[in-house]
Design a binder for these strands. Structure first.
Length: 502
DNA sequence: CGGTAGCAAGCTACCTTGCTACCGGTGCTGTAGT
């Protein structure tokens, strides 16, 4: 009862959404908690409310600067001023001020990278962190092994902060990812609160097309007929821009491309315009989506397949937050899996590069108790990308021990890299298996997340095709991609049927 | 793997064809003074 009073007092809500109270109760009982709650169920309340009960600071690890800024602004609007985002947005002078009076803040948002800086940890150690929160905790597993290695240091940091009570929040995590999160954070006993990942109002549709041109034409067709707004996902910044221009030139919709290559301000502007309904369609790379709270997204089209089922689920999960019927369409051409495979291989250093680097180390460097000193010239000569080089630095630093030989070190690192590529390829293969499968797509996704489908939804997927079959039996329409007008009618019928079934 | 940019050869006088090399996604970040 007491929790409801706090909820009303500080947030103005009368009742909790699914899972919130359970998570908060678990934390207040002192249990480390892994909460898997669907997006849009107010995950941030799960750490904000305990802040009014627990003494000391709430430290929230967040993956994106923009996400932190949003949270801080939102909390300020709710009247909570003791909030700060400790990151590189904060000018140095101000950052020092904040660091000198951290005690005045109740909620501290921080990136894993900043959290890895010894100077920052020393400051944080002076506080009493009563709750350590990892927001979007699947990033530990998705990014921690290579792209953002600081994600894998959170366990050490937790320990340095005195093993505080911990909350890991995510919307999509397989059993394996949940295990990664728990192991990486060094948690022993964990209370898991999990809700289904199924989104019954999102239908699945996979369509095979011969090539690039067909895909492009199909996108034009689909976007002109589908109810908007929507997002189209690409694995290439250039193609995202091309398609956005094409859609605008043809007068089909207000579209803009969104990817990591754009200026930070431009990105914020485009996202805002989309949220405010000034844009119908975003042609995006995987950079788009985290923290986008838009209720009425009606379709998600995949021009390229994502690199794993988790990413796919996260991306399509941005549709239909309002509960109305929405559709996820994936366009596939044979051989599409080659692009993600190339991306996966290119992210990690190759075995050849590793061998070369260790040759250089053996020829030119002396080992001392400080470990291996890597000269940055080697990066350029060895043709390492920024990410590959950082992975090498991390691995060498992390796995070097004075009592192992340099050859052993090289071999362990090579093995690690090979294993990572094997896992990534297997994720891509899983994705392709789903695309090619002839059975119910929803059932397969749930199976992938170790869930079973309990009740069949009326608008499921192209494989279930209940509505499609009944449609065809009228002898008029089919969902073939050659039937221009039919598609619109088909969707109209989908929407009508679902309204009736509600 | 598949698309494309850039260049050279081939064929005929400006355009086509063919070869090669290359690219493809996600984000964070301490500083100054001794």
């Amino acid at each position: 009862m007491e929790l409801e009073i706090l909820l009303e007092k500080y947030f103005g809500y009368h009742s909790f959404k699914t899972g919130q109270k359970e998570v908060i109760t678990s934390l207040l009982e002192g249990k480390h908690t892994l909460a898997m709650l669907p997006t849009g169920t107010g995950k941030s309340l799960c750490y904000q409310l305990p802040g009014y009960i627990l003494k000391g600071q709430i430290l929230i690890v967040s993956p994106l600067l923009s996400l932190m800024q949003d949270q801080v602004e939102q909390m300020n609007r709710f009247g909570e001023k003791r909030v700060v985002a400790l990151n590189s947005f904060l000018p140095v002078e101000e950052r020092n001020k904040v660091l000198n009076r951290l005690n005045n803040y109740k909620y501290i948002f921080i990136s894993p990278e900043m959290l890895a800086i010894p100077f920052i940890i020393r400051r944080l150690q002076k506080l009493t962190v009563s709750l350590f929160v990892v927001d979007e905790a699947h990033c530990i597993s998705q990014w921690g092994f290579d792209f953002r290695p600081d994600y894998s240091k959170l366990g050490d940091i937790r320990q340095k902060l005195g093993n505080p009570l911990t909350l890991a929040l995510t919307a999509t995590a397989t059993m394996k990812v949940r295990e990664d999160i728990i192991a990486s954070l060094g948690l022993e006993v964990v209370n898991k609160i999990e809700s289904t990942i199924d989104r019954p109002n999102i239908s699945f549709y996979v369509e095979e097309l011969a090539n690039f041109d067909e895909k492009q034409n199909r996108i034009v067709e689909l976007v002109s007929k589908l109810q908007k707004p929507g997002i189209i996902y690409f694995s290439s910044k250039k193609i995202a821009e091309q398609v956005a221009s094409l859609l605008v030139e043809k007068g089909i919709c207000q579209a803009m491309a969104y990817h990591g290559g754009l200026e930070q301000n431009t990105r914020i502007l485009i996202q805002q315009q989309f949220i405010n309904d000034q844009l119908d369609v975003i042609c995006a790379t995987s950079a788009f989506g985290m923290g986008v709270n838009k209720e009425n997204i009606r379709f998600i089209i995949h021009y390229h397949m994502p690199m794993q089922m988790e990413s796919y689920l996260q991306e399509i999960g941005r549709a239909g937050r309002d509960g109305s019927p929405s559709i996820a369409i994936l366009l596939y051409s044979p051989g599409d899996e080659q692009l993600p495979i190339q991306l996966a291989e290119g992210e990690l250093p190759s075995v050849q590069q590793i061998d070369w680097l260790f040759q250089q180390i053996m020829q030119t460097q002396q080992l001392d108790n400080g470990g291996i000193n890597l000269h940055s010239d080697l990066r350029d000569y060895g043709g390492f990308t920024e990410i590959q080089w950082r992975i090498m630095e991390e691995l060498i630093h992390h796995r070097y021990k004075p009592d192992i030989s340099i050859n052993t070190l090289r071999d362990t690192i090579s093995e690690f890299v090979k294993e990572r590529i094997r896992i990534k390829k297997s994720n891509i293969f899983q994705m392709r298996k789903w695309i090619e499968s002839t059975t119910c797509r929803r059932e397969l996704i749930l199976k992938y997340f170790e869930e079973t489908l309990t009740s069949k939804v009326s608008l499921c997927c192209d494989r279930c095709g209940i509505h499609l079959e009944s449609y065809e039996s009228n002898g008029k329409l089919s969902l073939g991609r050659h039937s221009d007008g039919d598609w619109k009618d088909y969707l109209a019928k989908i929407l009508l049927n679902s309204e009736m079934s509600e």
